[in-house]
């Protein structure tokens, strides 16, 4: 009986994870190295990968800065009422609970071309929806809880005493943050960065709604894969997917390493 369960577990693992990976790999190599390179060097592939890169970099930067700040304020700020803190704390998880598609839709409803704010931004020459800013915004929405949720428990665990000690020794908040708080939360932040990169690279639903998926304009790697599949261009889809999968595996290894260091 026990053996049956063990083999069943491994079977699920293989069917769910290993076979798809092999399939993507063999699919992208169906026409050898040249087919793979050709699929990736199509103008739309290069553009989509470039878009994904921009989104990943800017979202990770913004999320790191604001995520760490929000975590600090949620844990440390005594001037926030307890109730308000609880409310903010549960609001942070909203993107986890809401489907990314709905998150994207909310952005279109607020900043779309037919709304007051959308028109305002368009007038000053700053297109949000169906353009890069909207895509960054949508990805930011989806990834926002990741950093906060990584950093908050670390901050709670280290407590306020080391920071108070620093203040009695004459250090002000900026110095204290870099010399005392940062070394303690560093690995938590790195872990949060890895999660954010992984999530923003793979985000599909929210970006699809906000971007309109216009080839060579607002298409990202994931939405390109989707379109290639729609067009029965399986080889191209597999090739782009392989690039995404390879980066993800790399991140996974980095994450394991960060997790180990976080413990120290």
């Amino acid at each position: 009986m026990k053996k049956l369960w063990i083999s069943l577990t491994y079977l699920v693992f293989i069917v769910l994870l290993i076979i798809p990976l092999i399939r993507i790999f063999s699919g992208s190599w169906a026409e050898g190295w040249e087919g793979f390179v050709e699929a990736l060097t199509r103008p739309q592939s290069l553009h989509a990968l470039w878009m994904t890169t921009i989104i990943v970099v800017s979202v990770t930067l913004l999320n790191t800065i604001f995520g760490v700040m929000l975590a600090l304020y949620l844990v440390r700020a005594t001037w926030l009422g307890k109730r308000l803190k609880q409310l903010l704390n549960s609001l942070v998880d909203l993107p986890f609970a809401v489907s990314p598609v709905i998150g994207g839709l909310m952005i279109v409803l607020i900043l779309g071309p037919n709304t007051i704010m959308g028109v305002f931004f368009e007038d000053i020459g700053f297109k949000v929806v169906y353009a890069l800013p909207g895509m960054i915004l949508a990805t930011l929405f989806v990834t926002f809880p990741l950093m906060v949720r990584e950093v908050m428990p670390v901050l709670q665990e280290i407590g306020t005493q080391q920071e108070e000690a620093a203040s009695t020794l004459g250090a002000y908040s900026w110095y204290t943050f870099w010399k005392v708080t940062w070394p303690s939360i560093r690995w938590g932040v790195i872990y949060g960065v890895v999660l954010t990169v992984a999530r923003s690279m793979g985000e599909f639903g929210a970006v699809l709604v906000v971007s309109g998926n216009i080839m060579n304009k607002t298409q990202t790697a994931t939405t390109l894969v989707y379109q290639d599949v729609e067009n029965f261009n399986v080889l191209a889809a597999n090739s782009v997917a392989l690039v995404l999968a390879a980066v993800s595996v790399g991140l996974l290894l980095l994450m394991e390493w960060a997790k180990k260091r976080k413990g120290h």
Binding site: Q161, Q162, E164, A165, S167, T168
Partner: peptide, 20 residues
Amino acid sequence: LPPQERGIGFVFQNYALFKH
């Protein structure tokens, strides 16, 4: 006056040493 400007030294119950 904030703690930085009071010219005090404070020893905490659990010492609060900078562990890194």
